[in-house]
């Protein structure tokens, strides 16, 4: 479904990603772990098409299409969803109006009929149950005045409504207490199907107790230095990122 080949990207002239290679198949959950500043969030933003990041080399093929040639909205319409680490506030715009506009533009791009207000509200209420969100959020402005946990829940709600093919969760666990973490993880698990896939970007192993990955990648200094099964996450948790860094250093010396 997704094939990343030798991806290099920089922001403000500083190279952050230095040759990423990653393949994700339908039905899979990939975890991308790594220390702070290793390039995890940059990878997420580049895949979604944030204009501040410049791709300097490499390619990304998504369902046979050159993903990097698409505008951010076209990527979203093609089924790519990014759950933001820092969800953005849009004062004065209600959650329902925001999401309805997004969903209908996505539907329109696929040649599907747009949902009217009643149909959409029904769908929204149904999806809100998945993340146990209070109905008062329907009319509250997008992310304005929400707690950290509420913002993250709102991201998963948007994901539930938009039903992406490839979901990228950027540090969705940061700032969540254990109850909220479970609800969010539960939401992600409920949305899993054999046709879609997700990339879970996280610093801590904690989230992976609830969202069990098929593959774990370790990102250090802009490169994936190690990949493995779910047990790799546990090993990292136990030994810290230093052991990987030491391994690399040793390999480089040898």
């Amino acid at each position: 479904m997704l094939e990343i080949k030798n991806l290099h990207a920089s922001v403000n002239g500083k190279e952050i990603l230095k040759g990423i290679n990653l393949t994700v198949n339908a039905g899979e959950v990939h975890a991308v772990m790594g220390p702070n500043g290793s390039g995890k969030s940059t990878l997420a933003q580049v895949l979604a098409g944030h204009p501040a990041y410049e791709v300097t080399a490499g390619e990304v093929i998504y369902d046979g299409v050159d993903l990097l040639s698409l505008q951010p909205e076209a990527r979203a319409q093609a089924g790519i969803f990014l759950a933001f680490q820092y969800p953005v506030e849009i004062p004065g715009v209600s959650n329902s109006y925001f999401l309805k506009t997004g969903l209908n533009e996505i539907r329109k791009s696929k040649g599907l009929e747009e949902l009217d207000a009643m149909q959409f509200l029904k769908l929204l209420k149904q999806k809100m149950q998945i993340v146990e969100m209070d109905p008062s959020f329907i009319n509250r402005p997008v992310n304005e005045g929400y707690s950290g946990g509420e913002k993250k829940r709102n991201e998963i709600l948007q994901m539930a409504v938009l039903e992406p093919r490839l979901a990228i969760l950027d540090e969705t666990d940061s700032g969540l207490d254990i109850d909220a973490l479970q609800i969010v993880a539960e939401g992600v698990n409920k949305l899993k199907t054999p046709e879609n896939a997700s990339i879970v970007v996280t610093h801590y192993q904690r989230l992976l107790n609830y969202i069990v990955p098929d593959v774990v990648h370790v990102l250090v200094n802009g490169r994936i230095v190690k990949s493995g099964g779910k047990e790799l996450a546990l090993e990292l948790e136990e030994k810290g990122y230093d052991f990987i860094k030491d391994e690399i250093a040793a390999a480089e010396v040898a």
């Binding site: 933001f84 004062p91 109006y97």
Partner: peptide, 21 residues
């Protein structure tokens, strides 16, 4: 970017943000 990432095209996104303001 947040609006676009949810599939909303630039023109609609601006109109939405400004009207909210």
């Amino acid at each position: 970017f947040y609006c676009k990432q949810r599939g909303i095209t630039g023109e609609n996104a601006i109109s939405m943000i400004v009207n909210g303001f």
